[in-house]
Amino acid sequence: MSLLKEVTSLVRKEILLEWRFKYAINGILLYVVSTVFVCYQAFKSVDPTTWNALFWIILLFASVNAINKSFVQESPSRQLYYYTVASARAVILSKISYNMLIMLLLSALAYLVYSIIFQNPLGDPGLYFVVVVLGSIGFAAVFTMVSGISAKAGNNSTLMAILSFPIVIPLLLVLIKVSKNAMDGLDRSISLDEILVLLAINVITVAISLVLFPYLWRD
């Protein structure tokens, strides 16, 4: 069976499972909406820099909570079953792509709710959207691998935060910078360097996850 086929069937399985229970996705969506609302109640009105930073912080915590579960919810016996039917690469690729889908949904919703409640003019919505997409893909790639590591190390969420935050900070710094450029409506050529760095980080994390996950997987 080719890798692509394995990945697609595994992703389909994840979506089906999620669809049947709807517990995780609903919880996370509610989490995003309520965080945005709490922030709105606390701040009322903010200047653009804070608006931008706040958005990414909300998204960061939402994605940690969303992706933290990706390896926890699997029972050991089910993992053993995957081990016999699918290759490790297919497992991690399917997890990453499923988490990317979740993150895209999540960030789209977060962005929608956030911009409706907190009104803020955007200079270049197209670029901002591209940055949000790139950012959620990056978050998904980094957090999936780290959640795999922390799941092997006894599943506590503190460990997940400790391990993932230093890794995700560079991504976050670039994201905040580019999205600020997009908000101010600066010329797109200024942001080109940072977008390339973002793309490079995404590609590198996915590639390393692919290389390293087989070692994590065999037990």
């Binding site: 590591i149 360097d193 390293l212």
Partner: peptide, 26 residues
């Protein structure tokens, strides 16, 4: 040993981005 080695290899390229590429652009 295995899991910490995995984390070490995973974190290293990101550290390079952090310390060598980011400061050059800001």
């Amino acid at each position: 040993a295995r899991i910490s080695a995995i984390y070490n290899v995973f974190a290293f390229p990101i550290m390079i981005v952090l310390m060598y590429i980011l400061p050059k652009t800001t």
